[in-house]
Design a protein around this nucleic acid. Structure first.
Lengths: 261, 261
DNA sequence: ATCAATGGTTCATTATTATCACCATCGGTT
DNA sequence: AACCGATGGTGATAATAATGAACCATTGAT
């Protein structure tokens, strides 16, 4: 299904910064021929995943996506579960909280609650999180089957900041550490001023299906704050996992026993 | 792009009633070979549009859809515009209100606000509305280019109730009528107990990009109620169109001048 | 134990898709 | 005004990808 792959990859070129893309631009971005891209774009538009601006002729994400999202939310209301907890978490920690779910082998941000303070971490909407460079990613990998860990570590591990950990050996150690402590930590690894603390969300099978994370400016982070945030994040993770009908792994339960109290 | 088409059509088999679909069932529904369907399902899952239940092996709509929806909402916040107006509309009319957007040549429900009364019309989440049988569809066609009208009338016009209007000549008359009055009406045409009143939403190009509709139980409908609902729906349509940065067609403005007051 | 489901995989056959060249249009420059 | 370099879009052929019958492994009911 390589053509479907190629077509769906086009969707990932849309970001909040680049929300409208023309035919030629998309051909350049994706590296495919203009004619090929045109066929793929019109096909995606026919199904409502994209729509074309009637005058500019540019393409953007379409209304069909909203339909599918509403349908999914009606069947599996994760937003209804996640968002209130995130709001509470952000209020408790006074820092920005976000949640992400595992989709395929990608970690997708599906909820955010920004802190109300004047300086705070801001999350780009719809961001796909790199496993190796984020607390969320480590938290998920620490509670995922080896197959996923190996898949991720076999892939590219791009550098985002001077502190990004791109070494496979190091990453394996940090994932093992996460298995022991339950939580995932990434300081300055994705954005140079951000310290993040994450706890895994679990599906019914006891494997991680996502993570909930608090991201704080590095200037405010210290051991005391870390402890408070960790406890709050763990509580939030248990609450969301319960709300989604998931089953926390035994190792996570025991590792965080004293924290969640 | 027939393969992409086929793959994306699989998404439309998911409804709130049938939210999890197995491989064989999907092969039966779609009429394709099991091997083909398997390849398409795994491809869709790889991109997060679907996800597979780890034990049941069934497929459901995936978290990637939520990501895309959040991204679209961040760039073009239609939900933020539509939902408050729908809530107000439902409160004003004491009946269920819903909004839909044109995506490709399909009309997709992207917002609902149910009435609070004990008997009320309930809207199936993520429903794709048939143009010929719904007030929303007529309202959109009445303010769309002939090309769309012809496309729709050339397609299948399935019967939903005894009162469904499936005659092309009749439908053309009703579309012309809608062009004159501005609003779309469909009584008992889609569900046998529901009377709907719709007004078009406009894009920046002056063509309809969707509709806002109030659906009431037939038992409560009469000329007086129709007048009140019509006025409220027209007001709501103007408000949403303005909020989306659209430009109402001159014909719609003049036709509804006295109503919107 | 058997039967009929299920999910999943393989490989030769077959149909689709990619590419290049091309056209029409737009906006700014010379 | 002619020109240039963009843009979006299209058609025919060469190259590639998708299809589907037969296959296996499991599961659950009879």
């Amino acid at each position: 299904m390589r053509t479907v792959d190629k077509a769906l990859k086009l969707l990932d070129w849309f970001t909040d910064k680049r929300s409208e893309i023309g035919l030629s631009e998309m051909a350049r971005l994706s590296g495919h021929d203009k004619a090929t891209v045109h066929r793929m774009l019109t096909t995606l538009a026919r199904h409502g995943l994209l729509e074309q601006h009637s005058t500019l002729k540019t393409y953007r994400l379409g209304a069909g996506i909203l339909r599918l999202a509403r349908l999914r939310e009606a069947c599996f209301p994760v937003g209804a579960v996640v968002n209130p907890v995130l709001e509470q978490l952000a209020a408790d920690t006074r820092e920005t909280a976000h949640a992400s779910l595992l989709a395929g082998a990608q970690l997708m941000t599906i909820g955010t609650a920004e802190a109300t303070r004047s300086t705070r971490v801001s999350i780009e909407p719809g961001l796909i999180l790199p496993f190796h460079a984020t607390a969320s990613g480590i938290a998920v990998l620490g509670h995922s089957p080896d197959s996923l860990v190996n898949t991720v570590l076999a892939g590219p591990l791009p550098r985002f900041t001077a502190d990004t950990d791109c070494d496979i050996g190091n990453l394996r150690k940090r994932i093992a550490e996460c298995r022991r402590t339950g939580i995932g930590i990434s300081d300055l690894g994705y954005e140079s001023d951000v310290c993040s603390t994450a706890a895994p969300l679990f599906g019914p099978d006891g494997w991680a299906c996502g993570a909930v994370t608090v991201a704080a400016p590095a200037s405010r982070m210290n051991a005391d704050v870390r402890r408070q945030i960790t406890a709050a994040v763990v509580r939030a993770a248990f609450e969301i996992t319960r709300g989604l009908g998931g089953e926390p792994a035994a190792s996570f339960k025991s590792a965080t026993e004293r924290l969640a109290a």
